[in-house]
Amino acid sequence: MAYFLQQLINGLTLGAVYGLIAIGYTMVYGIIGMINFAHGEIYMIGAFICMIAFAVLGFMGIASVPMALLVVLLLAIILTAAYGWTVERIAYRPLRGSFRLAPLISAIGMSIFLQNYVQLLQGARVKAMEPVISGGFVLMRDGSFQVTLSYLQLMIMSVTVVLMAGFTTVIHRTPLGRAQRACEQDQKMAALSGIDVDRTISLTFVLGAGLAAVAGVMNTLYYGVIDFFIGFLVGLKAFTAAVLGGIGSLPGAMLGGLMIGLIEAFWAAYFDAAYKDVAAFSVLVLVLIFRPSGLLGRPKVEKV
């Protein structure tokens, strides 16, 4: 029981981060019907900005952890969002109206470019960071086994919940959210309602990148090691999460993220950790066979 509870906590933490990244995939897919394969790299850039920012702040002698954390988070969000905006501007927008595969190929190119760009600038070696936040609550004791909820895990989960709530509000209650949903359903009609479609798409990329930045910061703090290649697998998992939940659906992305996180954590705990990715992707295959539009996705209705 105690062991189970611990895995649940670990899985939820992992899943929260996947969910944050998955939202970026799902929103972009929703609005322009394309998988942004460079999104994993955007997350990786967020992680690098986090590490660099902590190094710089440490050098400047800022010792207060909450203060440093806030600055790092803001910096990462702003800079990563700028990357997200730029990627859309130079790699996708010029290809809008071209054949469907074009932006997809461009996205893969962008992904390779960003990996190499970071590798060249930061080197190929794995970078490690001292833990910034340590300690936690001991929730339960079972013999020698302790169930702990670390402060960091608590922070990751609560930040994710806050962001999700904020995001749901943006999508459902603000003009930007309405514009996004309108563009999703009928771009030409949206333009004819006075909505600047290009700008709405740009803002979608900016928001997605901002969330990926938060995920990057959280994972960097959690694991303490990063390299230029981390975006690949995490991106793939988050993409899987988005498809699992039903691509295009925001709650679906979050649910898919949590599921992937839990599956990984439990598989690694009870079976062979080496096969945890296989488990996660197998569930994807199963869901796609029995529910092709994902858990919360709307089945595509053919337009007349």
Partner: peptide, 14 residues
């Protein structure tokens, strides 16, 4: 949605 331009301006991009 039809009043988007005005609301967007008032909301300072949400």
């Amino acid at each position: 949605v039809a009043q988007h331009a005005r609301l967007m301006r008032a909301s300072a991009f949400s």
